[in-house]
């Protein structure tokens, strides 16, 4: 009687022209990840966001995207690493970043603006739009290397504009991030990087926490993983898990600390 191994080999051989290695499980690649600093999210992502890849954090305003990104940057700057925030709509709040533990001295903030310098002195080319500036700045930062994380903040950019970013740009970002071991975090209202993104998180606000009907104490947010490139190649039978986490007002957070 043939052994199980011999049977498996025979079946694989007979199906090889259609399905190579049909019965051999796919080797799983373990990617380096960096913790976000939010336990619920790290648990959902089995460690954190991937290093050297594009992670998209999507959702509407007030969905906790920015808080999540700041928590991630706080961990990186605490390690003595340099990070960058490319701000398309000039909406970054340094006070919030400092409150979340980001070491501002190690954060490069690139503030795009409507009317910028023209491309070359004397040229009649149109000035760069905010989105163009942001994409060029991100490209430069990724190529420069040495940044632990770069946040491309498209949170205030309309979906129709964000979805017009060419796939080639995202592909280039992905390659550069991979080579420089930089975590590129894209904040947006929707996922724009498509197949170039290693991770897509969708955020939403669950409820507001009130203190005595007079003060906003914090928010409860939900995070759902929409895409994870290097996850185990297993089709989920259930609805994807959702993690919830809280962000608090400064006074409440200090009280809890």
């Amino acid at each position: 009687m043939p052994s199980a191994a011999a049977l498996r080999l025979e079946i694989e051989r007979s199906l090889a022209h259609r399905f190579p290695s049909a019965l051999t499980p796919m080797p799983r690649r373990f990617r380096e990840v960096e913790a976000t600093g939010i336990a619920a999210v790290d648990e959902l992502l089995e460690g954190g966001m991937p290093v050297g890849a594009i992670s998209e954090v999507t959702g509407a305003e007030s969905s906790g995207r920015t808080s999540l990104a700041l928590a991630f940057l706080a961990r990186r700057t605490a390690e003595g690493r340099i990070c960058a925030w490319v701000d398309v709509s000039d909406s970054f709040d340094p006070e919030s970043a400092a409150a979340n533990g980001v070491t501002l001295r190690q954060l490069l903030w690139v503030r795009c603006r409507d009317r910028s310098v023209t491309r070359k002195a004397g040229s009649k080319a149109k000035p760069w739009t905010r989105l163009d500036q942001a994409l060029r700045a991100t490209d430069l930062l990724l190529q420069a290397g040495g940044f632990a994380a770069i946040v491309l903040d498209l949170g205030g950019t309309a979906r129709e504009h964000g979805s017009r970013i060419p796939a080639a740009t995202w592909f280039r970002f992905r390659q550069a991030a991979d080579q420089t071991r930089c975590s590129l975090v894209v904040l947006g209202k929707a996922a724009y990087a498509q197949s170039s993104a290693a991770l897509v998180l969708e955020c939403r606000r669950e409820q507001a926490k009130i203190a005595g009907e007079t003060a906003l104490r914090g928010f409860a947010y939900a995070v759902e993983c929409r895409r994870e490139r290097w996850a185990a190649n297993v089709m989920p039978m259930r609805k994807p898990p959702v993690s919830t986490w809280q962000a608090y007002a400064t006074w409440e957070a200090e009280k809890r600390a």
Binding site: G80, I82, Q106, A257
Partner: peptide, 30 residues
């Protein structure tokens, strides 16, 4: 929203206290 822009400098490691609560972040309208 009161801040100034300074030049970037490589800093030292500043240990972050584990388990600290996440603060609600703001997006400024400028």
């Amino acid at each position: 929203d009161s801040f100034r822009m300074d030049s970037l400098s490589a800093g030292d490691q500043t240990p972050l206290c584990e388990g600290r609560a996440v603060h609600m972040a703001l997006r400024r309208v400028r």
